[in-house]
Write a protein that binds this DNA or RNA. Structure first.
Lengths: 253, 253
DNA sequence: AACGTTGTTCTCTATTCGTGAACAAAACAG
DNA sequence: CTGTTTTGTTCACGAATAGAGAACAACGTT
């Protein structure tokens, strides 16, 4: 593409560097990571600072993310009505399964947990909300991928190196694609010990009135607690996504 | 200033337009608000979209804020250790006063509530976190302003039109400035019926080890409930900010 | 006290940003 | 269903500027 404003893209990338970094970064460090001159990075920083997207620590002279991003981030949440909509459903699912329940959506080539409800176990799993992860890596995400066109699936599966997180992980693209077909046929996925050893996820899709998958719900817990009850949890999960889909205007065929 | 990358600034302002708008906006609308050509806005949008800062609704063709802003926003929060630090203090303050307690910080020329703890009253006040407001408008903010250099105070007070929110509001700059001196002398502020009729705020500053004011704490409630107990609430608030300041390494002189 | 950093400023040219008009594709009204 | 308006999108070009690179100042370290 050449329809891209390079300095805007640099600004965006500069901000995103902070996602995987300690809280403060200096000009020199940023210029290395962005592969830009120090002068250019400095101009970027002072522009972003004047708009509140970046803040400079007066003592250390280093830079951090600014409060305007906090405002914008909360605005994203309030815009996103499915988050509010899902809250009572997730609550109920947790109270019935006693495990972590999450709501997962797709954003271009990534998946994101946008809502979650922790279980009440004293020792419990939780997930990081709002962080991107690959569409093939968790059960909630794979359910989303399963309902995408095949060309898109191939694009995703080719692009990424498909790291094996655990010994049980998928190894071949063909294997994943078979699995995606199976998800679509049965309408859910139960995945054990894939990304994280000892973790089992049970996930199912939510449909809107046009029949598109808008999000997925997943119950996640330790395998030895979840697997014995897997039928029961699956039924609860399916009941939840059906209720949500119905409320969104979806009519089962 | 001419040390500013204009397209980056335009991108930032484009994003901020969404803060005070419905959730979706079109190119034409944005180009009017930004006073830029439609073509330029379109380039901005597709650049921001390719970085995840903007999302386009495929049906309506309109644009919304993207999930990357959610990631960045939560990162701001996790970076900001005073938020975690304040949590137990705010909790305790609420349990002792039975009113809303907030933590307020300054960001350039604005104030922002970065943490809050609602009271347990069935009908209760609350505030919107993470939205900017003027430094002269609430007691928590005025406490922050009171400890700023006088030139800065003048800058703030001159710049804004100083709207009178209620009949009891300040009208003149001199009046506010006298008040700021008083805040600094007594170390707290009690403000009634200023911005919102019937609301009373009791606020006091937190000092760090270098003696700078890093944030302020305020207890906010309906005047008829707060004013009768104002001495008690004030003492609780002062005890809280002193404990917080001490833990940050501040030594009272 | 000398050094190696850091963030900041400056100048200059190749680059690109923003305009304005033309385009297609919806949404609308009659 | 059809003409009309408004939408998002594309394009080409000239004016404006973004980014490189070196020099600077202000640190902290050795």
């Amino acid at each position: 593409m050449d329809q891209v404003l390079s300095s805007v893209r640099n600004g965006c990338r500069l901000l995103k560097i902070f996602l995987d970094s300690p809280k403060e970064l200096g000009v020199t460090e940023l210029s290395k990571k962005l592969q830009l001159s120090k002068g250019a990075v400095h101009k970027l920083l002072s522009t972003l600072e004047s708009e509140g997207f970046i803040r400079q620590n007066e003592k250390t002279k280093q830079y951090t993310l600014g409060y305007t991003l906090l405002e914008l981030g909360t605005k994203v949440l309030t815009n996103h009505d499915i988050v509010d909509f899902s809250k009572p459903f997730l609550d109920q699912l947790v109270s019935r399964t006693n495990e972590l329940a999450v709501l997962c959506v797709q954003d271009s080539k990534d998946a994101i947990y946008v809502a979650k409800e922790d279980s009440l176990h004293p020792v419990r799993f939780t997930v990081e909300s709002f962080r991107r992860f690959p569409l093939y890596s968790t059960s909630a995400a794979r359910v989303l991928l399963a309902y995408q066109p095949e060309e898109f699936q191939d694009e995703i599966l080719q692009e990424h190196p498909l790291k094996s997180y655990t010994p049980h992980s998928y190894t071949s693209v063909e294997q994943i694609k078979e699995d995606l077909v199976a998800i679509r046929e049965q309408g859910y996925e139960i995945s054990s010990n894939r990304r994280n050893t000892g973790v089992t996820g049970i996930a199912a899709p939510i449909f809107d009135s046009t029949g598109h998958v808008t999000a997925s719900v997943s119950v996640i817990g330790p395998s030895d607690r979840v697997m014995p009850k897997k039928e029961e949890i699956l039924q609860e999960t399916l009941a939840t996504v059906r209720a949500m889909s119905a409320q969104l205007g979806y009519r089962m065929s």
